[in-house]
């Protein structure tokens, strides 16, 4: 099976690799894994609390080329979007953009899940009660 040109492009030149500083208030983190292939993906979104717009995104993925390309593409896709709009992003958009073959569709599902997980995480520490507590204490 050959990777599509777009997958190779993202794989060799991934966008927005890395992570934001831990415990930053405006950052939501989603870590998701696929049991099928052992891939694991971390997506972080920096979200403006005033207007709910995703201002920046970073990812780190351990997995195959398609998983890396899917998460790389997603960081570009969500930037500038409102979180409610980002929540509606479907994996099919990723499949289409990257020309993923059927056996790699689960990589795009993983990326979609990562967006939702990151936004949900961000929301969970935006509530007034938890915003006053340091985030670290909540996690442990």
């Amino acid at each position: 099976m050959a990777y599509s040109e777009k997958v190779i492009e993202h794989y060799t030149n991934p966008r927005n690799v890395g992570s934001f500083a831990k415990g930053e208030d405006n950052v939501g983190t989603g870590v998701v894994g696929a049991p099928e292939c052992g891939d694991v993906m971390k997506l972080q979104l920096k979200i403006n609390p005033e207007n709910g717009v995703i201002e920046d995104a970073k990812f780190k993925t351990f997995g195959c080329g398609s998983a890396i390309a899917s998460s790389s593409y997603v960081t570009e896709l969500v930037k500038g979007k409102h979180i409610e709009e980002a929540m509606t992003i479907k994996n099919t958009v990723i499949v289409k953009e990257l020309n993923l073959p059927p056996v790699k569709i689960h990589c795009s599902v993983l990326a979609e899940d990562a967006i939702k997980a990151a936004i949900t995480d961000w929301k969970s520490h935006q509530t007034p009660a938890s915003a006053q507590e340091p985030r670290k204490a909540q996690e442990s």
């Binding site: 870590v31 696929a34 049991p35 099928e36 052992g38 694991v40 689960h106 899940d113």
Partner: peptide, 12 residues
């Protein structure tokens, strides 16, 4: 298609 978040974090 997915695993519990704490497991994914550990694997990461």
């Amino acid at each position: 298609k997915s695993v519990p978040a704490d497991l994914a974090e550990m694997v990461f």
